[in-house]
Design a protein around this nucleic acid. Structure first.
Length: 496
RNA sequence: GGCGGCAUAGCCAAGUGGUAAGGCCGAGGACUGCAAAUCCUUUAUCCCCAGUUCGAAUCUGGGUGCCGCCUCCA
């Protein structure tokens, strides 16, 4: 089976082939650290986290880099408002970022380069662009000359003429920065220092880098001149990624990335969630409601990554309920493994036995291959989730049968296999259920005490003293015991 | 104005030529003193029009509606 992915660059699905066998070099445009992350950021991080996990599950060794933009007007503005420094602001929100991502169960990238730590690489790129005639200085700024780069617009499907036409009326010629440019669409590689702002020494005088150049420099420094996959939000296609391509390819003469992937936006009330519209909800606010992080992940993963997804309370509730179902399946082994006499009911952790699974692909059960078949088609996680739900629902049913009837329909060893597959596939999507969350709610009653109360209730029932029997049932319920009346007057019970 | 995308049940959402995955919500039934839990069953012809085809949600053309990008943006 072949993994096929949609490439923004070619606007079609292509079979995935790495530059180097078995290895994937992947770069994700991260965030500008001037505020807490919102659900839109969460989507980006979760989607590419899962892409990475999936590639690894498919047997690739993935090198995954994500940057932090820690030089920017917004950060400076915030620092000014607070009376603190740029470093102070960026450090704080980088810390917050990691806290949020940990809660969302997003795995850490292999490295998180920052603009302020990539200064040499940035200056080298600007210098080389200038040497090759793609850049020109203007009063301490340095601009990229868009007209000189012939591939400009290839990613976003724009022509220079269209851009110019579209810009008429938008470009403010009075703006001093615009006035320095030869063409309105030239963009800054380096900006001259302003009074009271952080700056770095450079051949063009004191200043700081433009936004786009840092990614070009980081990719080159960390992953090389051409990488396999470059990802980010679809709102970065133009101008950010277009400019990255221009800068990098003008210098190296090689493609910056083979595949360009972009995730769709999160919407609220039909509109894009964004800072400027003020319709955003931060990850921490959402999780503090509280919403289970896994429900958030499910909400994100149930939509195809390229499509926009609408955030509503209803959708969130559906995801929360859906996660409950999935969770019950994932906890099956912990709850019933012992009872079913499994030899080994510890779950395979997400760091995975899957490589071994790969070695015996011919034995991989049909469910796992259906999962792979779905996800191989441009990361159709929703399709893969359907497979997970199938298993989870079956396990839940078998677990219930065990509780209610004391026996399962499916043989124990088969259930064990199913469960292991479920746990493994769920981990590929980043889902994990922790058994301790469940056992914490244990009651203080001993089995004997419960039995005694159940017996008392049975007697009340026999005497048709419904008030008393209902009171006893209610009492036990409050103490975490669920009663199950069965035909023939037998009452089973279990701790919640 | 330019470029791109989307339109599938009450809601969310896969599917991209052979008569519609999955999730959520709901309905009916079994069981029960009632309930809870559980089990079983059940909910669409795919925005509109025309065309191609033996056959289209799926391809082509037209229309309508919505969204994104074109300025910082995940």
């Amino acid at each position: 089976m072949t993994l096929t992915i949609y490439n923004t660059l070619t606007r079609q699905k292509e079979p995935f082939q790495t530059l180097e066998p078995g290895k994937v070099r992947m770069y994700c445009c991260g965030i500008t650290v001037y505020d807490y992350c919102h659900l839109g950021h969460a989507r980006t991080c979760i989607v590419w986290d899962v892409v990475r996990r999936y590639l690894e599950w498919r047997g690739y060794s993935v090198q995954y880099i994500q940057n932090f933009t820690d030089i920017d007007d917004k950060i400076l503005n915030r620092a000014r408002e607070e009376g603190t420094s740029m470093e102070d602001v960026s450090e704080r929100f980088i810390k917050a970022y990691f806290e949020d991502m940990e809660r969302l169960h997003v795995r850490q990238a292999d490295a998180y380069p920052r603009a302020t730590q990539t200064m040499d690489g940035i200056k080298r790129l600007v210098y080389e662009l200038e040497q090759k005639g793609y850049a020109y200085p203007a009063n301490g700024d340095v601009y990229f000359c868009v007209c000189r780069f012939h591939g400009y617009g290839k990613l976003s499907g724009r022509k220079l003429e269209d851009l110019q036409a579209g810009a008429s009326g938008r470009v403010d010629l009075e703006d001093p920065e615009v006035a320095k440019k030869k063409y309105p669409f030239d963009f800054a590689l380096w900006k001259a220092a302003k009074e009271g702002e952080p700056s770095w020494e450079s051949p063009w005088g004191k200043g700081r880098p433009g936004w786009h150049i840092e990614c070009s420099a980081m990719v080159r420094e960390r992953l090389g001149e051409t990488i396999d996959i470059h990802v980010g939000g679809s709102d970065l296609i133009f101008p950010h990624h277009e400019n990255e391509i221009a800068q990098s390819e003008a210098v190296t003469g090689k493609p910056l990335a083979k595949y360009w992937l972009h995730n769709g936006m999160v919407k609220v009330g039909g509109e894009k969630m964004s800072k400027s519209l003020g319709n955003f909800i931060t990850i921490r606010d959402l999780l503090d409601r509280p919403i289970d992080p896994m429900a958030v992940r499910l909400f994100i993963l149930q939509a195809h990554y390229r499509k926009p997804v609408d955030f509503t309370d209803e959708a969130l509730e559906a995801a929360t309920n859906g996660w409950e179902t999935l969770k019950e399946g994932l906890l099956f082994g912990h709850k019933y493994g012992k009872q079913l006499g499994w030899e080994d009911f510890t779950p395979v952790s997400h760091s995975l036995k899957q490589h071994e699974t790969h070695k015996c692909r011919n034995q991989v059960p049909a469910t796992a291959s259906r999962f792979q078949e779905a996800v191989d088609d441009d990361f159709n996680f929703a399709g893969g989730l359907a497979v997970l739900f199938e298993i989870a629902k079956e396990l839940r049913k078998e677990g219930n049968l065990l509780v209610h009837q004391g026996t399962t329909e499916i043989p124990a060893d088969e259930l064990e296999t199913q469960w292991h597959i479920l746990v493994e596939l769920a981990a590929v999507l980043g889902f994990e259920a922790r058994p301790e969350e469940e056992s914490d709610r244990a009651t203080d009653l001993t089995d004997e005490e419960i039995e005694a109360l159940v017996q008392k209730r049975s007697e009340a029932r026999k005497a048709k003293n419904w008030a008393k029997s209902d009171r006893l049932r209610e009492e036990l319920k409050e103490r975490g015991i669920t009663l199950i009346d069965q035909p023939g007057g037998v009452t089973n019970w279990h701790r919640n």
